[in-house]
Structure formats: C-alpha cells, structure tokens
C-alpha cells in the first residue's frame, strides 16, 4: 500500500500542464482528485514516474450556463455538482448521480473531469454523459478539440485522449424543463462501484414517449449508450411490452465481468432491473 517513487509537478495553467506532459513523456500522469489514480499507485498497479497535479489551475473549476448548454470545468468536485443551483435547475440528474458516487469525504476531493476522463467503466458519470449527449473539450499539444462523450470510451481505462491531452470542460445540452430523468445504481455498500447502474432521460407528450436516452454503468469494458433500447421506447406509452423489449435490448449489449459483485449473468440482469426502475422514476418525473 505504498506507491513507488515519483516526482510531483503542479502547473498553474493549462498551457504549462500540456507543456509538462509533453516534456515528461509517457511516464507522466495527470493527477486530478486522485481517487482513482492514487489507489492504483498504492497497490502498484500504476507506477507513474511523474504526477502532474492540475488542481492548481483555477480555470478548470466552475459550473456555468452558456447559451443552451451547461458547462462544467473538469476540476469541479462532485460535492460542487451536488450543491450547484444551476445544475439543480437544469440538470438535477447530475446531483442525483453524484450523491451515489463514493462517500462525502471522497466527493469533496473527487473531480467531475477525473470521473469522466479516467475510462474506468465503474465510474458513474460517463454513462450519464453519454445519456445526456455531452461533449468533452480537450486541450493537447496540437491545440484544442471536442470529443462527443458517446465516441470517447474505447476500452477499460482506454479513451480517445492521447498522451498529453487534458480534459478541460464538459458541455451538456440543457434538456427541456419537462424532461424526466433518473439514475439508478445497485451497489453493495456506500463507496462501492456499481454492480450495475442506469441513467435515463426521456421526454413525454400526451402520454407518449417523444425521446429517450439510456446509459449503462459498469456492465461492459466501457460505459454503454443503449441507443437501440431507447429507440424501442420512443412513440410508445411505456407499456410493459415496450419496456420489456427495451430492457432486453439493453441487456443484449452488456458484457459484464464476473467479479465479487456477482457473476456476469446477474450483473446483466441488474442492468435491466436498474434501467426499468430508472425509467419508471423518469416517467413519474416527466411532465409532458
């Protein structure tokens, strides 16, 4: 439980951080809140020679409404997501999800950007970002670019980020005020990653589902966007047969590992149960 030796760097600007990462090469890691990286280092599953701590970069913090989007700085903590009035007003599902991440102590330090960028399929925010159609703003040696959350996750701890890239902010389209939403997470205890979890956002009109988006957490190498399942719901009144079909479609794309949370088939079924329950709650919240 003691990490290997490393050098510590604390740049003050994004440019400095990008420069440092370029200079230090592949053996340098970005340190955000540290709640994924440091446990890996303590068990020596990761042994970076350099840590580039980006918590000194003030520009990376904050939550703002910009036009039709909510913009969240990468270094915003999960605690700040829970207490944000802008999010409470426009995207309450983010606070709902944040409350299910780890425990209060970790949420004071753990960052939104770290959670979405680390590529750990157990993190909760990635599936939600896919569900909400978020865009990630990235700055690297070649300048800045945008990557859609739905295109970002390639494998376990493997994303579209290249070495030297820093996720700076996440932009999320503000959903209609009458949308329904929910994040349902099954976990063994406080602080645990999901056995399975589901993020759901829908809109309803005249009792019919007019749009649906579903994300699934920790039931594959990557977070999943269950687009086919969601499509099966649009145009229906979310009757049992339609929901059953959508749940089956969502379960079909899962490929969870067997671990101490349970065997693969259990976790697949729990993805279905969580999705069903999230959908029920989202429907109860949808005002259309």
């Amino acid at each position: 439980m003691i990490p290997g030796a490393f050098d510590y760097h604390r740049p003050a600007t994004v440019e400095d951080a990008v420069g440092l990462l370029a200079k230090l090469g592949e053996e340098a890691n970005i340190l955000a809140g540290g709640h994924s990286l440091i446990p890996l280092m303590k068990t020596r599953l990761a042994s970076p020679e350099h840590l580039v701590d980006i918590s000194g970069i003030g520009d990376l913090k904050g939550i703002a409404v910009r036009g039709e989007e909510i913009v969240i700085g990468a270094m915003t903590t999960q605690f700040e997501l829970i207490t944000s009035h802008d999010l409470e007003k426009h995207l309450p599902v983010i606070a709902e999800t944040s409350r299910l991440i780890a425990d209060p102590q970790i949420r004071y330090k753990g960052t939104f950007g770290g959670n979405v960028a680390n590529g750990d399929p157990g993190n909760d925010m990635p599936a939600l970002m896919m569900c909400l159609g978020a865009t990630y703003a990235v700055t690297g040696p070649g300048g800045s670019r945008d990557i859609a959350a739905r295109d970002f996750y390639q494998g376990a701890y493997f994303t579209s980020l290249e070495h030297g890239d820093i996720l700076t902010e996440v932009r999320i389209p503000i959903p209609p005020a009458d949308h329904g939403y929910a994040y349902e997470k099954l976990k063994r205890k406080v602080g645990d990653y999901a056995t399975a979890a589901a993020a759901v956002a829908i809109t309803m009109a005249d009792g019919k589902c007019t749009s649906a988006s579903i994300g699934l957490t920790n039931v594959s190498e990557t977070p999943l966007w269950a687009s086919a399942a969601a499509e099966l719901l649009v145009g229906t009144n979310l009757d049992k047969a339609s929901v059953d079909a959508a749940v089956a479609a969502a379960e079909a794309i899962t490929e969870p590992a067997t671990d101490m949370r349970g065997p693969s088939e259990y976790r697949t079924k729990m993805a279905g149960v969580m999705m069903r329950r999230a959908l029920e709650r989202a429907q109860s919240r949808a005002k259309g």
Binding site: R188, R261, G262, P263, Y266
Partner: peptide, 16 residues
C-alpha cells in the same frame, strides 16, 4: 447472503 447469491436463489426458484 449477499445480493447476487439471493438473486440466484430466486433464479433457481423461477421467480424472475
């Protein structure tokens, strides 16, 4: 009696 094991009991009993 963790959750997955109890779920398996239900599965064997055809409760799902």
């Amino acid at each position: 009696h963790d959750a997955w094991r109890l779920w398996q009991v239900g599965e064997k009993l055809g409760l799902h």
